[in-house]
Amino acid sequence: MEISVKAAYDQLASDYEHNVDTKNAFNAHYERPAMVNLLPADLTNMKVLDAGCAAGWYTVKLLELGAEVIATDISKEMVAATQRRVGNRAKVLNLDLEKELPFENGTFDYIISSLVIHYIKDWDKTFSEFQRMMKPGGILQFSIHHPFMDIKFSKNQEYFSKELIVDQWERQGKLIDVPFYRRPLNKIINKTLDYFSIEGIVEPKPTIEFKSLNPESYERLIKQPNFLIIKAIKKH
């Protein structure tokens, strides 16, 4: 992952730790309810990787569902935030998902990755590592930017190309450059199918709680999606 992604999320860590869970409707009342709805109600005796854990919201949720959790993030500040949140209940590691990962073949029953994979330029290394580390029949569940949303950020408006986009987020009075990769829907689906069988695709809609926090964005999201969720199974 590019060094600028690390820098961006080191700067964002405090905001994620203290504000995102309650104040950011896109996380709390849009992406997360849809992702949780796809999770099994009971993860007891399952080993789960939280791949790109940010400040640890999903790490806690997975623990609550009974899983044995290992969480990773590229940002040392995010790793520290997650460690503060979960204590010794989960192992939290500072790792780059674009590199070889220090886990044995067939380690995980489930890998969940929330709004992370669009920061990765080349999915082959990441998906091949995920596939290697998963048990037969293991599940990968990930959310990313929806390509129909991302095309609005494109300078060249060439939908069918992969493109580096640098978005600017305002947090606590600062503008932070957040780079990510835009890619068309066919590349998202076909690259996933190179390594997994797709079980389902979700284009989430905002909850009613979202409307009270951000009515203008609610009306937009009811009509067009921001995120895309894919649930896939390791090919035998």
Rank of each mutant, 00 (worst) to 15 (best):
D122P: 06
D73V: 05
I120Y: 06
A71R: 01
D50H: 04
W123K: 07
K47Y: 14
I70E: 01
A71L: 12
K152L: 14
H118N: 15
D50E: 04
A54V: 01
F142A: 10
I70H: 00
E77P: 02
N45T: 14
P136D: 15
M134R: 02
H29M: 04
V69H: 04
N105I: 07
M78I: 09
F26L: 12
N27E: 14
N156R: 12
A51G: 07
R89S: 14
N24T: 06
S113Q: 04
T126F: 04
F130I: 10
M133A: 12
L97G: 05
F103R: 11
L63H: 04
E64R: 11
Y30A: 03
K152C: 11
T72H: 04
F127C: 01
V116M: 06
I111N: 01
K47T: 15
S154G: 08
L43F: 10
E64M: 07
H29V: 02
L39M: 10
H146P: 12
N94T: 10
V116W: 09
A28N: 07
A67H: 03
D109M: 09
V69T: 05
I144M: 12
P147E: 05
Q83S: 14
R85H: 11
G138W: 00
D73T: 07
G52L: 10
R132T: 04
Y58Q: 09
G66N: 11
I70K: 00
H118L: 09
L115Y: 08
T59Y: 00
T126R: 07
K152P: 05
E68K: 11
K125R: 15
L63W: 01
